[in-house]
Simulated assay, not measured.
Amino acid sequence: MQARKKGNAQGIDVSRYQGKIDWKAVKAAGISFAFIKASQGKSYRDKTFIGNAQAARAVGVLVGAYHYVDDSAKTPEDARKEAANFVSVIDSAGGIASFDLPPVMDYESNKSGLSKAALTAVAKAFLQEVERLTGVRPIVYTYPSFIGNFSGLSDYPLWIARYSSTQVPPGASGWSRWDFWQYSDGSTGGTLPSETRKVAGIAGPVDLNEFDGTVDNLRARFGKRTAAPEKESVKDAVFQVDGKTVGKALLSGSKTNVPLRVLATAFGVSCNWDNSNKVAYLDGRKLQSVQLVEGAAYVQLRPIAESYGAEVSWDAKNKIAALKLKGDK
Rank of each mutant, 00 (worst) to 15 (best):
G201Y: 04
D91T: 12
E77D: 12
A125M: 03
R225Q: 15
K5Y: 08
R4P: 11
Y141L: 14
V140D: 03
L114W: 06
I96E: 09
T191Q: 10
R302Y: 03
T196C: 07
E108Q: 14
D242Y: 00
P103R: 00
A84K: 02
A34Q: 01
S151V: 09
A296C: 06
A79L: 03
V262A: 07
T214I: 11
T48I: 03
G11A: 09
Q291T: 15
D179Y: 05
G41F: 01
E129L: 04
K74C: 13
A321G: 05
L292V: 15
R45K: 15
G186R: 01
D100V: 10
E195F: 09
A321F: 00
R45D: 10
D185G: 08
G135K: 04
Y44A: 14
D242R: 02
L218C: 04
K319M: 01
S151E: 02
D78W: 01
K198F: 08
D70N: 15
V206I: 11
A55R: 10
L208M: 13
V279T: 08
K317N: 04
A203D: 10
V130W: 01
A264V: 05
Y143E: 14
Y281K: 00
D46F: 06
Y141I: 15
Q167E: 14
I50T: 14
P103L: 00
Y68H: 13
L153A: 02
S72H: 08
G60S: 03
G41V: 12
A53E: 07
Y107P: 06
K317D: 04
G295V: 12
K326Q: 06
G51C: 02
I36G: 01
